[in-house]
Design a binder for these strands. Structure first.
Lengths: 248, 248
DNA sequence: CGAGCACTTGATCGCTTTCAATAGCTGTGG
DNA sequence: CCACAGCTATTGAAAGCGATCAAGTGCTCG
């Protein structure tokens, strides 16, 4: 297992797949050019730790492709996932040196990075970046609080259904499927990662996945390929309002 | 129970108790003057709901004094607290109309408010405000993620100890006590509110409080007045690193 | 003094964890 | 080609922790 951390200069920002969703989304062409000049790409392999909790962080960046997780670990080994980083999500905190969490690549991943100091200076002079980052941070805060309800008050079955519906809806936003039809997607997480996200054991995750399959809420091909025949049903199982999702 | 929502113009920002910690912390005197001109105060009584989840929010603001909670409720009544609002904390989200959570005053509370539209415009022209708000939002995000570990992975006893140590440390930051001595503070929350924060039932909260008292980790006078003879011990019970807190 | 509220305490139940065995899959090497 | 290690996932049985149901205490206020 060679730890070959790639480090490359790649195409310009105008062709970037996350151009319109990442921290640079609001930037004008000239601002984009400035970013283009100081950005660099880094790739990580599945399983690699991108940032260790407590380490000094000298860069920030965006996930371009692939998936990473933010996790916290107690001394005795109990771990809790506190964030799921998808393409366009931002990593790192301007204005703070130490990293509060482990960031681990769960799939092969490509990141668009900036050294922290230059990025911080850029933020001072480029309101479009600061505003977009505020907007994204507020969204993450909402997501974290949503998750607190899941962790604090939902049953194991509801937790699984909540996770599935979140992953499903994310895929839907990319594929632009019609809301009525069945949803099909791949779970990007192992059972253990799901457990760490949900505050459960991996055995309980496995049992509840089996139960949802047995009850016809989901269908499984292999371990990771999921079909949801009826999203409304899944949302009910998650304990969420089933009325939502009517985004014509 | 008269719902007398006070609405007053009060002293200038320069005398404000949260002047150096709130969203206005970074403002220059002239910027402060602009804020001063459009701010207004509102008071709420303990128990009053300040904002209903789903309602249109036409103002944002800072807690000046008192305590409020952010809560989420499922259809069947299960509720989870997702935030504790202390003096200087910011309420409301620029750029979004609907409120995602209930905001409830747990004590009598005074808020410094701004109508949303003017505040948003001000944010565009005043980077000091936008930057401070980003900083505060990132802090809240860290706090929310810290809490996810508590909700997902800690035992009932650890949860209670975590809550107590957080409240204790907050008070410490105000009182500037020496780290070695005993900590004394009042719990601003009922047992039920503690339960909603911790994802427990109020019975379990009560039992674990009794257990911590029995084991000498805390002492109680009345229901709310808490003495912690040894903070290190409390931190151990919370499952946190006990080495921390060495801030000379 | 009695109603109402916040809190405490006890007994029992049930969900999730824990411990343990097994299955399925992949890659390696004889 | 098959045996085997290593990993992920499933399933079963038993244990434990927190929830639920149910009194009961102490305080405040009318």
């Amino acid at each position: 297992m060679t730890i070959a951390t790639g480090q490359t200069h790649l195409p310009s920002c105008t062709d970037c797949p996350i151009r319109h969703r990442a921290v640079c989304a609001r930037c004008e062409p000239d601002e984009l050019q400035t970013l283009d000049a100081i950005k660099y790409y880094r790739s990580f392999e599945a399983g690699q730790t991108i940032i260790w909790s407590g380490d000094k962080m000298d860069f920030v960046g965006s996930v371009v492709s692939g998936i990473a997780t933010l996790t916290q670990t107690m001394e005795d080994g109990r771990t809790q996932m506190v964030g799921l980083l998808l393409p366009s999500d931002f990593v790192g905190r301007p204005g703070r040196d130490g990293a509060p969490y482990d960031v681990v690549a769960t799939t092969d991943i490509m990141m668009c990075c900036f050294r922290k100091k230059p990025f911080e200076q850029l933020m001072m002079t480029t309101p479009h970046i600061a505003h977009r980052l505020l907007e994204m941070t507020l969204d993450e805060l909402d997501a974290a609080r949503e998750w607190m309800l899941v962790l604090g008050r939902k049953t194991a079955r509801e937790k699984i259904a909540s996770l599935l519906s979140i992953v499903a809806r994310r895929d839907a936003s990319l594929d632009a499927r019609r809301p009525g039809g069945p949803m099909i997607f791949d779970l990007p997480l192992t059972r253990e990662a799901m457990a760490d996200y949900l505050g459960l054991t991996l055995e309980t995750v496995s049992r509840q996945m089996s139960a949802l399959k047995r009850d016809g809420v989901i269908r499984l091909e292999g371990k990771r390929h999921v079909t949801v025949p009826d999203m409304g049903r899944l949302m009910e199982e998650a304990g969420d309002d089933s009325d939502g999702g009517c985004l014509a």
